[in-house]
């Protein structure tokens, strides 16, 4: 077969042991699949969404209830976006617990963290685009958090909201960030991330001489497995879209008025919980950004797992990173659950 771009993405062969679902969870591949689904469904929504405060919620209602299959497409967009955050998160878990962040993959790990942050921001901006009463708390609180940053707070707030209050300019900025300002970098970093996987020597495995299992599968088999996973993924996604509609509420009346007793989007529930404890700058900005920096720099300050322990779960030489990551992950999960229970 004549080499094509496709051959850049798939190596001729990969180690069979590391190609198993129980090793990778298929999380990275699923993320690519979900990213394609979210872009495709999002492109369809672009033709119907009207990014003005008056029209945004109405255009979403119109898309959801009146455009043939509009609700289905919106549900697909919603679910693929939520699952994408989940899949990317699981991919991160896998990478940490298999030591796949170790040199020479440290830079690609950073790209991955950048991609994850971009996904969270994409999810958040998309959530705000609903411009309905259920996003009001997150909109007001999220943008006010920027103000709490000493020195550059006001400037950042104006940059994000487009003025000194929330309104039409804010919405168009979120729209711009969502479909362009964040989407474009996410795609570029995503492609870069994929490219770097092969560049850094493919999936993390011990050096050839130290591998217990020399068996490899070829790219045809790999694509076959990916296609199968995509089939299952698509079935799940379509099923979710058919039975579980994306949330929607009545339009925002007065955007600056923070609605009490509202829940943040699920992926920021942990921040909402911390905000209950006081200083917004400390709990809403400093700690989350600090934790993110800690996560991003894990490969740089923890001992690198030894090459011989790669390609399997929980390499003992990566304990420090595994413990720090577990502590962060459990804290985030517990805080999220706490916020959710407090609201319920």
């Amino acid at each position: 077969m004549r080499p094509s771009f496709f051959h850049h993405l798939h190596p001729p062969t990969i180690p069979a042991r590391q190609a198993r679902l129980r090793y990778t969870w298929g999380a990275g591949g699923f993320s690519v699949f979900l990213l394609l689904a979210v872009i495709f469904s999002g492109l369809l929504e672009v033709f119907f969404y009207v990014p003005t405060p008056e029209q945004a919620p109405l255009s979403i209602q119109s898309l959801t209830f009146l455009i043939p299959y509009g609700g289905f497409v919106r549900n697909l967009h919603y679910w693929s976006a939520q699952l994408l955050v989940l899949a990317a998160g699981l991919h991160l878990v896998r990478v940490i617990f298999t030591g796949a962040y170790a040199p020479p993959r440290r830079f690609n790990y950073l790209l991955g963290i950048g991609l994850f942050v971009a996904l969270l921001l994409l999810d958040f901006t998309g959530y705000i685009l609903r411009w309905d009463q259920d996003v009001q708390w997150a909109l007001v609180t999220g943008t006010n958090l920027l103000k709490s940053i000493p020195g550059i707070g006001q400037w950042l707030y104006a940059l994000v909201t487009g003025g000194d209050r929330l309104g039409a300019v804010t919405l168009i900025r979120f729209y711009g960030w969502h479909i362009f300002g964040l989407m474009l970098p996410a795609v570029i970093i995503g492609v870069w991330h994929l490219f770097r996987v092969r560049r850094d020597g493919g999936i993390a495995v011990p050096p050839p001489a130290q591998r217990q299992d020399a068996e490899r599968i070829n790219r045809t088999e790999l694509v076959r497995r990916e296609a199968l996973a995509a089939l299952f993924g698509a079935a799940g996604l379509v099923f979710l879209a058919a039975f579980f509609p994306a949330p929607l509420a009545a339009p925002i009346g007065e955007p600056d008025a923070a609605k009490q007793a509202a829940l943040a989007p699920w992926f920021f529930l942990w921040v909402q919980q911390m905000l209950r404890w006081g200083d917004p700058f400390l709990f809403g900005v400093l700690i989350p950004v600090g934790w993110l920096a800690l996560l991003a720099l894990l490969p740089y300050f923890t001992p690198a797992p030894s090459a011989v322990e790669l390609g399997r779960w929980f390499p003992p030489s990566g304990r420090a990173a595994q413990l720090i990551f577990s502590a962060l992950a459990v804290t985030v999960l517990v805080f999220s659950l706490w916020a959710w229970l407090a609201a319920a």
Binding site: Y69, L228, L231, F232, A234, A235, F239, A242, F243
Partner: peptide
């Protein structure tokens, strides 16, 4: 593998059929 592929395909078709049925 072939069987799994068949199951996955049927699942996807079923999910799509349900979606279309619900909309229609």
């Amino acid at each position: 593998m072939q069987r799994t592929r068949l199951v996955a395909s049927i699942l996807l078709l079923a999910a799509m059929a349900i979606s279309i049925w619900r909309v229609e």
